[in-house]
Amino acid sequence: MPIHPGTARIHSVSLRTAQQRRAIPGFGLTLGITLSYLSLIVLIPLAGVYFKAAGLGWDGLLHTLSSARVLASLKLSFGAALIAAIFNAVFGLLVAWVFVRYRFPGKRLFDAFIDLPFALPTAVAGIALTALYAGNGWIGRYLEPLGIQIAYHPLGVVVAMTFIGLPFVVRTVEPVLAEAEKELEEAAATLGAGRWITITRVILPSVWPALLTGFALAFARAVGEYGSIIFIAGNIPMVSEITPLLIIIKLEEFDYAGATAIAAAMLTLSFLLLLAINLFQAWVRRKR
């Protein structure tokens, strides 16, 4: 279990086994580098957020977090991330299934492109999506007559979040689907199960832990995402303003306390999510 109250032990001497210290050199040096660098770059700065937030006291924190604008942004960030993650779960599963199970021309090319959201800078994705979905864009121009607005609207947030979360589900589900034994499906067939029953009762239950993990990863990424969203969202206060943007706005207003309070809340939520993913995976591993 990755996160538990045992952090302090890392610094104790008991963690090296004498035998291995003799066999291979470099333990002290490399662990030293790792821990110092990790602490300096990640742990101490992150702890600083909580330290600063603690200085505000409960009242100060609640005051910032309960303002209507913050609540609206949290609702949008988490709500849109949820919708995008569900969308990605459905289509990610479909894409993973098609790429693992079927052969078709152009498969390898498309497979490489699935990782595009990992490789493409978020700002580039942001302006490209905006150009597509704006009223005069390639896609927007067909949606606008139908009364559907995506750019400068909460829907735009969902679109951007779907884009950046897309590879998570595909890449977590693919290996599980690939390792599924062909014999399980054959066994189901010999027992009289049709294809649909085999898929819903035999294949999907074995995939769903991976699917849930991919869903959670896509969700976590979407909640924290900034670059690709701010261009398409329009950033209208109370309507299409995401939480990370609000942090930046507070900073620009030199409201460091407000920014810290929101950041601490977001950090806590993402840690809880991470913890939940890890606990869930440990539980699945134990069960299998």
Binding site: L46, V49, K52, G224, A259, A263, L267, L274
Partner: peptide, 13 residues
């Protein structure tokens, strides 16, 4: 799992 905006914020703090 940390939002990039928060990552920037920690250094400002």
């Amino acid at each position: 799992s940390v939002s990039p905006v928060v990552a920037g914020l920690v250094y400002v703090l």
